[in-house]
Nucleic acid binder design. Structure first.
Lengths: 246, 246
DNA sequence: AAGTGGTCTAGACCACCGG
DNA sequence: CGGTGGTCTAGACCACTTC
C-alpha cells in the first residue's frame, strides 16, 4: 500500500485543466462574466500560456466560453436551438422565416455543389447569399445555388446586385412545385466570406448544412448554410412531435 | 507601379499554409497516401512545427487528413454519409440497423438528459451503450437513457451486465407505441469513454446527436450519440425523397 | 497607450507504432 | 529500436478593442 495509484495513465495537462475550468465555470461563474486574462490564468495554474490556451480552445469548441480579441474571455450562454428541419415542403424564403437576403450574383458553384446539381463544372448558377439572425445575433450564413435552367424567367435579368435581386430569385423559386428535400450536416471551418458575416475569425468551426431541393424530378437548387458551431444547436423536429411542447 | 499590392491584410501563415496544402492534396496526392512527417513538412515550408500543425489540425477537422500517433499523416477518404433521420416512428434497435449493443447498467444520467426526461437529478435510469459501425469502421458511440418507469417489466432484472442485458432493454422498448421523436445536433468533444470506442484520442471533435423518443404523451427515452466529426457526414432524409436516388 | 486574445518560434520530452 | 504524432515550454510580436 502507500502508493494507491501509480500515475500509470498520466492525463495531459490541458485535459485536466479543462476539467478544472469546466467545474469552476459551473460553480463560480455567471453567464457573461469575464475570466481573468490568459497570462494570469496560465500563471495561476503554473502552466505555459499555450497549454492554457489549449484548454480554453476546447471549452470554446464546446460552447462554454466565448473569446474576443482585444476584449477578453467570457462565459457563454447555453447554445441556442435553431430549427433546421422546419417545413419539409417549403422553398427557402416562403414563410416568415428568420433568413435575410443579402445579395445575388451569377457564379460558378463549388465542385461538390455542381455535382449535386448535375451541372457541368464550369457552368454558372444564381448564387443567393442570405443571413440568419436569431436573438439579434448572426447564427448562419448561406449561399443558395439555383441553376439558370431552374428559373428561366430570370434569363434577361436586369435587377442590379443586392438584396432586391436576391428576393427576385427566391420569388421565382416559389412558382415551382417542391417535391421534397434532403439534408446533410458536417463539420467545417468558416471561409473568409462566411466568417465575416458570422462575426468570427476565418477558420472558426461551423456546422455545414447542405440542403438539396427537389422539384420536377430533379435537383432544382442546393443550399449550403454554415452555422456557428460554438453558439448553435441544430434542431430537427420530426412530424408532429412539436405539438407536445406543453 | 511595382508595388502592386501592399500587404495591407496579411493572412496568417497557417491559413495560407492550409490553402497550399489543400490544393496539393487535390492535385498531387491519392487517398490513403502518407504525407511527409511534420518536421520535414515544416522545414520545407520554412515555418515552425507548431505552425505547420495548426494547418494540419484544420485540414483534419475538415476531414481531409487523418493523423495517427506513431504512424503518420495520411490523405483521408471522402466523408461517409451516415443516415440519422431513418425511421421517424421506430424505436432504436427495431430494424436491422447498424447499431450493436455493447452493455447496459443503471446510472445517473447527465443533468441535461435528466431534464429532457423530466427526472429528478439524482434518479437512476437504464443506460444502454451501443456502437455504430459502417464500412468496418466505428463511426458513433451512443448511450440510450431509459427511465425505469418506462420499462416496468425490467424491475426485477437479473440479466448480468453485457450485450444481452442491453438487448433486453431494447426489446422491452418495442412494446411501447412510439408517438414520435425529435433530434438536435451540436458540436462537442469526445469524453474518454466514447473516444476509446471511436478509436480516437479524448477531446476529438464529435457531432453530438440527441434524440428524444416520445410515447404515451411523455419523453420515454433519450439517446445521446457521438459521431466522429472527422469522418462522418450526417444525412437526414425527409419523407419520400429517397425514391429519387436514381 | 494599455490590455486583450491571436500568431509564431525553436526548442524539448513523451506516448505510441512498427519492424 | 527508430520514427511518428502529441504535449509542453518560455519567450516574442501582431491585431484588435477600449479608454
Amino acid at each position: 500500500m502507500g502508493t494507491t495509484q501509480l500515475e500509470t495513465v498520466p492525463e495531459p495537462k490541458y485535459w485536466h485543466l479543462k476539467t478544472v475550468l469546466s467545474n469552476a465555470l459551473d460553480s463560480e461563474f455567471a453567464v457573461g462574466e469575464i475570466l481573468p486574462n490568459e497570462r494570469d490564468l496560465a500563471a495561476r495554474f503554473g502552466v505555459a500560456r499555450a497549454t492554457l490556451r489549449q484548454a480554453l480552445e476546447q471549452l470554446e469548441l464546446e460552447g462554454r466560453l466565448q473569446r474576443r480579441r482585444g476584449v477578453g474571455t467570457t462565459v457563454a450562454p447555453p447554445r441556442v436551438g435553431v430549427a433546421v428541419g422546419e417545413a419539409p415542403h417549403a422553398w427557402p424564403g416562403s414563410g416568415g422565416d428568420a433568413w435575410q437576403p443579402v445579395d445575388s450574383s451569377l457564379r460558378r458553384p463549388p465542385a461538390a455543389v455542381a455535382r449535386l446539381l448535375g451541372l457541368p463544372a464550369d457552368e454558372e448558377a444564381h448564387a443567393v447569399r442570405r443571413t440568419r439572425v436569431t436573438h439579434g445575433q448572426p447564427v448562419a450564413a448561406e449561399v443558395l445555388y439555383v441553376p439558370v435552367a431552374t428559373v428561366p424567367a430570370l434569363a434577361a435579368l436586369d435587377t442590379p446586385p443586392g438584396p432586391a435581386r436576391a428576393r427576385a430569385v427566391l420569388h421565382e423559386l416559389q412558382r415551382l412545385e417542391l417535391a421534397g428535400q434532403d439534408r446533410s450536416v458536417e463539420l467545417g471551418s468558416a471561409p473568409a466570406d462566411d466568417a465575416k458575416q458570422l462575426d468570427r475569425l476565418p477558420g472558426a468551426p461551423v456546422l455545414v448544412v447542405t440542403t438539396r431541393f427537389v422539384a420536377d424530378g430533379r435537383t432544382a437548387a442546393v443550399a449550403v448554410a454554415t452555422y456557428r458551431a460554438d453558439t448553435c444547436r441544430l434542431t430537427f423536429d420530426d412530424n408532429g412531435v412539436e405539438l407536445l411542447a406543453s
